[in-house]
Amino acid sequence: MTFDSNAPKPFARSSSQRMVGGVCGGIAEYFGVDANLVRAGAVLAAFVTGGTAALVYLALWMLLPA
Rank of each mutant, 00 (worst) to 15 (best):
M1V: 07
M1N: 06
M1T: 09
T2F: 13
F3Y: 13
F3V: 12
S5Q: 15
S5H: 15
S5D: 15
N6A: 09
N6D: 10
N6G: 13
N6E: 10
A7Y: 04
P8E: 12
P8T: 12
K9D: 11
K9P: 06
K9Q: 15
P10C: 03
P10D: 10
F11S: 06
A12W: 04
R13A: 08
R13V: 04
S14P: 01
S15M: 14
S15A: 14
S16D: 10
S16C: 07
S16L: 08
Q17H: 14
R18P: 00
R18K: 15
R18S: 02
M19L: 15
G21E: 12
G21H: 14
G22N: 04
V23W: 04
C24V: 06
C24K: 07
C24S: 13
G25K: 08
G25S: 04
G25N: 07
G26V: 11
I27L: 13
I27K: 06
I27Y: 05
I27D: 04
A28D: 09
E29R: 02
E29D: 15
Y30T: 06
Y30M: 07
Y30N: 03
Y30A: 05
F31S: 08
G32K: 05
G32S: 10
G32A: 10
V33G: 02
V33P: 01
V33D: 00
V33M: 05
V33N: 03
D34G: 01
D34M: 10
A35N: 06
A35E: 11
L37D: 03
L37A: 10
V38M: 06
V38H: 00
R39E: 03
R39F: 08
R39K: 12
A40N: 04
A40R: 03
A40F: 08
G41H: 01
G41S: 01
G41D: 02
A42W: 05
V43E: 03
V43K: 09
L44N: 09
L44I: 03
A45L: 09
A45C: 08
A45K: 03
A46P: 00
V48L: 10
V48N: 01
V48S: 02
T49P: 01
T49Q: 03
G50K: 06
G50H: 07
G51V: 01
G51W: 09
T52A: 14
T52H: 09
A53V: 03
A53E: 06
A53N: 05
A53H: 06
A53P: 00
A54C: 07
L55C: 07
V56E: 07
Y57F: 12
L58K: 12
L58P: 01
A59W: 15
L60H: 08
L60N: 10
W61A: 11
W61V: 10
W61S: 12
W61G: 05
W61I: 02
M62F: 15
M62D: 08
L63A: 15
L64G: 00
P65T: 13
P65Q: 13
